[in-house]
């Protein structure tokens, strides 16, 4: 149970960062921290006590394997996370070019 709680704390750390930081890049880093806490959680729920890597070995027919599906999910989610982060970073570079700052308090054309 402890590991799950640690995962959740990591999620909260990321959330805290995303809410309190003023720098755009730091917000993205906080988002990534949250993302990885969720990935960690997904990887943990697939763990089976004493299980080995899920590659079928013909020599050991009754071996115990960990659940491979969450691992596949994490891999897919990592790819998606890569795309989102890259997209965010390119937007930040564009924002920097237009506004000459990365401070979120100075980037507020839209309101109301």
């Amino acid at each position: 149970m402890t590991v799950y709680i640690l995962c959740f704390i990591l999620f909260l750390v990321g959330l805290y960062g995303a809410i309190t930081r003023r720098n755009l890049v730091k917000i993205v880093i906080s988002l990534s921290v949250m993302e990885f806490s969720v990935f960690l959680f997904l990887a943990l729920i697939g763990y089976v006590e004493g299980g080995s890597a899920p590659i079928i070995d013909p020599a050991k027919p009754d071996a115990l394997y960990v659940d491979p599906l969450p691992q596949a999910m994490v891999l897919t989610a990592i790819v998606i996370g890569l795309a989102t982060t890259a997209m965010l970073m390119s937007v930040i570079i564009r924002i920097y070019r237009k506004y000459k700052t990365l401070d979120i308090r100075e980037i507020k054309n839209l309101r109301g």
């Binding site: 390119s90 570079i93 070019r97």
Partner: peptide, 16 residues
């Protein structure tokens, strides 16, 4: 695609 992302970010930076 990863190379594209890398190159695009480098190009953006060079343009700045």
């Amino acid at each position: 695609s990863i190379l594209t992302i890398f190159l695009a970010l480098v190009i953006f930076k060079e343009e700045i």
